[in-house]
Structure formats: structure tokens, C-alpha cells
Amino acid sequence: MFKRLMMVALLVIAPLSAATAADQTNPYKLMDEAAQKTFDRLKNEQPQIRANPDYLRTIVDQELLPYVQVKYAGALVLGQYYKSATPAQREAYFAAFREYLKQAYGQALAMYHGQTYQIAPEQPLGDKTIVPIRVTIIDPNGRPPVRLDFQWRKNSQTGNWQAYDMIAEGVSMITTKQNEWGTLLRTKGIDGLTAQLKSISQQKITLEEKK
């Protein structure tokens, strides 16, 4: 169930391209415009997507990853294993993690069937560096609404905000991946996880038929 919630949630996290980005210092504006741009692209490019579902990787690479804190999220997933990894191991892992996100997020976007969304009203940021933004996803086919909290983090150097995690039903996506990959990290280390991520990233994206 959580895996499905995570995939549905990713439908609204794909941010804007650099040329049309919203105010990078306001995570609420980023979330709002990102959702609108993403849904528009999914709707307008269905012919290309249906002809070649792996085209979704391109959308992810162009529109999402430049505005997601990939390395920060990847380091959180590694936890204690990050500090013990060599620079070469980290570089290989982050490259594999990025390719994994292209496949995983692309597969999530393949679930698009006309969903709509509501974003919580903007709250004062103050001096906060981590801000959760509640998004409610509404399914046109009558499924119950899904309420999610996207975690946005302020870059201490640039002042810009980027998304790095999502919490559904009190469970963090980062925590879920830590639990899912924990045994592999304990037995085969970061190299074993890197190899698995490379394998997963090679899987073809498949479209979910409308139910």
C-alpha cells in the first residue's frame, strides 16, 4: 500500500525546468507551479508516452532531478554507511541512485490517469530550513484521497528550496528505503546496493492501464 502511495505522490513532485522555475526561495510556489507544469506535460505528451513509456525517463531527467536534492536524499538512505564509504564508492552510488530515480519516478508518472491535487495554504517560513507541505491527491475514479507531506529543505548556501522526502501515513519514503535496503547494505555494503540500483534502473517502464 505504501509503495502505491509513494508512486501516486511522485506525480506531483516533478519540479519546473530552470527556464520557467518559480521563486526558488518559496517552496509553496515551487510546489504549486511544479504540480501544474507536471500535470500539463503528462496530459499533453501522452502520444509520446504511450508510444514509448521510457520517454518518461527524459521527462524526469529534464523536469524533476535538477530540483530534487538527489545527493542529500541518497546520503540519508545510506545512513551510517555513508561515512564509511570511499569517495569513489559515493560517486558510483550517487550515479546509480540518480539512474534509479529516473526509472522509479518514471514508473510513478506512468500512473497518471487524470488525477488532480490540492496544496495546503502557504504558511510563514520564518527562519525554518525544513518545511512540510501537505498535498491532497484526488483520484477521478473514486479512490479515497491521498494526503501527503512533502519535505522541502532550504539550501544554506543559495537560499533555494528543494524537495527531498515524502511522508505518507506517518511513514517517510527515506525511512522506507532504509528499511528495504538495510539488509543488503549490511551483507554486501554500498557496492552491493550500487549494483542492485544499476540493475533496477535497467527495467523498462510500463504503463498502468486505467481501472
Rank of each mutant, 00 (worst) to 15 (best):
Asn155Arg: 09
Gln48Ile: 09
Glu33Asn: 14
Lys83His: 02
Glu99Asp: 11
Gln24Met: 15
Asp191Gly: 09
Leu125Ser: 05
Ile133Tyr: 01
Leu76Tyr: 13
Ala22Val: 07
Pro124Thr: 04
Trp152Gly: 05
Ala96Leu: 07
Thr176Asn: 14
Gln115Ala: 04
Gly170Pro: 09
Arg57Cys: 06
Tyr28Gln: 10
Asn44Arg: 06
Pro121Met: 13
Glu91Phe: 08
Ala163Ser: 09
Glu63Arg: 01
Arg41Lys: 15
Ala163Phe: 14
Thr38Asn: 06
Pro121Thr: 10
Lys204Cys: 15
Gly192Ser: 07
Ser156Phe: 14
Val135His: 12
Leu193Glu: 07
Phe39Val: 04
Gly126Asn: 15
Ile200Glu: 11
Leu101Cys: 01
Gln46Met: 00
Ile137Tyr: 00
Leu16Ser: 05
Pro53Gly: 10
Glu169Arg: 07
Gly79Phe: 04
Ser17Gln: 01
Tyr112Pro: 09
Gln69Val: 07
Val146Cys: 09
Ile133Gly: 12
Ile13Trp: 03
Gln24Asn: 11
Thr20Trp: 02
Gln196Thr: 15
Arg57Thr: 11
Asn26Arg: 05
Met111Asn: 11
Gly142Trp: 07
Leu76Ile: 14
Gly142Ile: 01
Arg4Met: 09
Arg134Pro: 14
Ile174Leu: 15
Gln123His: 13
Tyr93Trp: 15
Trp181Asp: 12
Val8His: 01
Leu30Ala: 12
Ile137Lys: 15
Lys210Glu: 11
Ala19Leu: 13
Arg186Leu: 10
Pro53Trp: 08
Thr194Asp: 00
Ala95Thr: 11
Tyr67Arg: 05
Gln69Met: 01
Gly170Trp: 06
Glu45Thr: 04
Ala51Asp: 02
Glu209Tyr: 12
Gln24Thr: 04
Ala51Ser: 02
Met1Leu: 01
Leu193Asn: 06
Thr129Tyr: 06
Gln107Ala: 03
Pro132Glu: 09
Gly106Asp: 00
Asp40Gly: 06
Ala96Tyr: 00
Ile119Tyr: 07
Ala18Asn: 09
Ser17Tyr: 14
Ala18Gly: 09
Gln203Tyr: 11
Tyr105Leu: 11
Gln69Ser: 06
Arg153Ile: 05
Gln103Pro: 01
Val60Gln: 05
Val171Arg: 07
Met6Lys: 01
His113Trp: 13
Pro53Ser: 10
Ala163Gly: 09
Met31Gly: 09
Ala35Ser: 13
Gln118Ser: 04
Arg153Met: 10
Thr136His: 04
Thr129Ala: 04
Tyr112Glu: 14
Lys211Gln: 15
Pro27Ala: 11
Trp181Val: 11
Gln48Lys: 14
Gln80Asn: 07
Val68Asn: 11
Phe2Val: 09
Gly189Cys: 07
Lys37Trp: 08
Arg134Phe: 04
Tyr100Phe: 03
Pro145Val: 11
Tyr117Ser: 13
Glu208Asn: 03
Tyr105Val: 07
Thr158Asp: 13
Leu56Lys: 11
Gln48Val: 09
Val70Ala: 13
Tyr164Arg: 05
Thr187His: 09
Asn179Cys: 07
Pro47His: 03
Ala88His: 00
Ile190Tyr: 13
Lys29Met: 11
Arg98Gly: 01
Gln62Trp: 08
Asp40Ala: 01
Ala21Gln: 01
Ala110Lys: 00
Thr187Lys: 14
Tyr117Met: 07
Thr206Trp: 08
Tyr81Thr: 06
Pro145Trp: 07
Ser84Asn: 02
Trp181Gly: 10
Asn141Gly: 09
Asn44Cys: 00
Ile167Lys: 00
Thr175Val: 08
Thr175Met: 15
Gln80Met: 08
Leu30Lys: 02
Gln115Tyr: 14
Tyr67Lys: 15
Leu197Gly: 12
Arg153Trp: 05
Lys43Ala: 03
Ile59Gly: 07
Leu193Tyr: 07
Ile174Gln: 06
Asp191Glu: 01
Ala18Gln: 07
Lys83Glu: 09
Val60Thr: 08
Gln151Lys: 15
Ile174Tyr: 06
Gly114Glu: 02
Gln103Phe: 03
Gln48Thr: 08
Leu101Gly: 01
Leu16Ile: 12
Leu184His: 08
Pro66Ser: 07
Thr183Gln: 15
Met166Trp: 04
Ile59Ser: 03
Val12His: 10
Arg90Ala: 13
Asp54Gly: 05
Ala9Cys: 09
Ala73Met: 07
Asn160Leu: 09
Asn52Trp: 00
Arg50Pro: 04
Ile119Asn: 06
Gln162Met: 08
Leu101Ala: 01
Pro145Glu: 12
Arg186Tyr: 01
Asp149Lys: 12
Ala168Thr: 15
Ala88Ile: 15
Tyr67Phe: 12
Val8Ser: 03
Arg90Pro: 00
Val171Gly: 10
Arg153Cys: 07
Pro121Asp: 11
Met31Tyr: 03
Ala21Tyr: 00
Pro145Thr: 04
Ala19Gly: 05
Asn179Pro: 08
Thr187Phe: 13
Thr58Cys: 03
Phe150Met: 14
Glu99Lys: 14
Ala88Gln: 00
Gly142Arg: 10
Thr176Trp: 07
Arg90Ser: 12
Thr176Gln: 15
Asn141Phe: 11
Tyr81Lys: 02
Asp165Leu: 08
Lys188Ile: 13
Leu64Thr: 07
Asn26Lys: 11
Lys188Asp: 01
Trp181Ser: 07
Ser156His: 11
Ile138Ala: 10
Ile119Val: 13
Gln69Tyr: 06
Lys177Ser: 07
Tyr164Gln: 14
Leu10Pro: 09
Pro124Met: 09
Val146Ser: 11
Thr20Val: 03
Val131Trp: 03
Trp152Glu: 01
Pro53Phe: 00
Ala195Cys: 10
Leu197Val: 02
Leu64Tyr: 09
Thr86His: 08
Ala51Cys: 00
Ala14Gly: 10
Arg41Ser: 10
Asp23Ser: 08
Asp139Gln: 15
Ala88Ser: 06
Asp23Pro: 05
Gln202Asn: 14
Leu64Arg: 06
Val70Thr: 10
Glu122Val: 11
Lys128Asn: 08
Trp161Tyr: 11
Ile49Gln: 15
Ala110Leu: 04
Phe94His: 07
Pro53Lys: 00
Ile130Met: 05
Ala35Phe: 14
Gln69His: 02
Arg143Gly: 07
Ile200Asp: 04
Met166Phe: 03
Leu5Pro: 02
Lys128His: 00
Ala18Pro: 03
Pro140Thr: 07
Thr183Ala: 03
Asp191Ile: 02
Lys198Val: 15
Ala22Pro: 01
Glu209Arg: 12
Lys71Ile: 11
Ser17His: 09
Met6Arg: 02
Ile130Cys: 13
Tyr72Gly: 08
Phe97Pro: 04
Met31Val: 02
Ala51Ile: 08
Val60Ala: 07
Ser84Glu: 07
Leu78Gly: 01
Ala73Lys: 05
Thr187Arg: 03
Asn155Ala: 01
Thr158Met: 12
Pro87His: 04
Ile138Asn: 00
Gln118Ala: 14
Gln178Arg: 11
Lys43Trp: 15
Lys211Asp: 12
Asp40Cys: 15
Tyr72Cys: 08
Gly192Phe: 12
Asp139Arg: 10
Trp181Pro: 10
Gln162Glu: 14
Ile119Cys: 02
Arg143His: 04
Gly182Pro: 09
Pro15Val: 13
Pro27Cys: 01
Ala95Ile: 06
Tyr55Asp: 09
Tyr81Arg: 03
